[in-house]
């Protein structure tokens, strides 16, 4: 059986995707499968770097002009219709979800997003993914082929490093005039759609959540920060320690911190070596964002908060106070050296 991995090189998260895919192919995927990578790119200057990132030796290049990935569909649908490729894999995320879902719809296959593990059997793909906001893991079977799956973003411990040398199997250029910036070309679009429904797409903010996903040292603030000021003080302590800063959903929803700092089921999932959770109860929806951390330290005055039992070490105290003290110690140590 063959698989095709999809690497969206038109967005800044390509490296994170590549790492997730490589890790997943190494540890998350069981079954006798060989495969290739479709690399989507829009800028010639990125081409080489993206090819290097590909998690398989065999690579197919698709060039588009857009930052949105729909131009890929013709190639993918053709590959799917060829019947040879049983499994399409993309990294979790908005574009990954869109690609696998639309592909499954067009090719008549089954789709599952955010797979933790998959196992290819002759007639079905057995997948596990988090359900009920990460309270449980559900096991699913994909029956109809092609199986279209996004893989959990947290396969960072790349035991199997990306292939050293790559073979380019094919190249296609889809960046023709249909691909105006931001244009979605929908192969099934009816007359009702009209031309170029997404005119003038414009990227407003610098990428940042991508950094969170890659973080090695993360401080996550929760409601225990108690206010915007408390949140800012924890963020500042994180900065002084050289840590990245994330927040729980309520903190982001209260606009105590920007939405792109959000960790968990509706935000980023990371696998840092060290994660300090400051003033969050550690509800499963948040915990999902940090559960792959090497060492989890909880700071929470409430010893019954789930995060305490789900941490390696816990400090039962006020989050802001502890983080500020810790920042002083860590910063002192660093300047000392």
């Amino acid at each position: 059986m063959r698989f095709a991995a999809l690497l969206d090189g038109t967005v800044a998260t390509a490296a994170v995707q590549a790492q997730a895919l490589a890790g997943f192919l190494g540890d998350g995927l069981r079954g006798d499968l060989a495969g290739e990578t479709f690399v989507l790119y829009c800028d010639e200057r990125d081409r080489e770097r993206l090819v290097d990132l590909a998690p398989t030796r065999d690579v197919r290049l698709v060039k588009t002009a857009a930052r949105r990935p729909e131009r890929m569909f013709d190639c993918l649908t053709a590959a799917a219709r060829g019947g040879d490729t049983a499994l399409f894999l993309a990294a979790a995320g908005a574009t990954g979800t869109e690609i696998v879902t639309r592909l499954a719809c067009r090719a008549g296959g089954g789709v599952l997003t955010d797979a933790l593990t998959i196992e290819a059997r002759p007639q079905r793909l057995v997948c596990r993914k988090n359900v009920y906001s990460n309270h449980l893991v559900g096991r699913f079977e994909l029956r109809a082929r092609p199986w279209c799956v996004t893989v959990d973003a947290c396969w960072n411990d790349t035991r199997r490093s990306p292939s050293p040398s790559h073979t380019i199997l094919s190249e296609s250029d889809e960046s023709g005039d249909a691909g105006r910036p931001g244009a979605t070309t929908d192969t099934r679009a009816t007359g009702a759609t009209g031309a170029a429904p997404f005119a003038d797409a414009e990227l407003l903010e610098a990428p940042s959540s991508g950094d969170l996903a890659k973080s090695r040292f993360l401080v996550v603030a929760g409601y225990g920060a108690a206010s915007r000021e408390g949140t800012e003080r924890i963020a500042d302590a994180a900065r002084r320690m050289g840590a990245d800063f994330g927040v729980s959903r309520p903190v982001a929803m209260n606009a105590w911190a920007p939405m792109d700092r959000l960790m968990g089921v509706s935000g980023t999932r990371a696998a840092p070596a060290l994660c300090i959770v400051a003033g969050a109860s550690g509800a499963p929806a948040l915990y999902w964002g940090i559960e792959k951390a090497g060492l989890i330290v909880a700071v929470n005055p409430d010893e019954r908060a789930p995060i305490v039992a789900n941490s390696d070490a816990a400090l039962l105290d006020d989050a802001v106070a502890v983080l500020e003290e810790l920042a002083e110690i860590v910063a002192g140590r660093r300047t000392h050296e």
């Binding site: 409601y223 225990g224 108690a226 309520p250 929803m253 209260n254 109860s281």
Partner: peptide, 10 residues
């Protein structure tokens, strides 16, 4: 608890 109170404020 404090979380419900803050959520209600929001």
């Amino acid at each position: 608890g404090p979380d419900k109170i803050t959520a209600e404020d929001e």
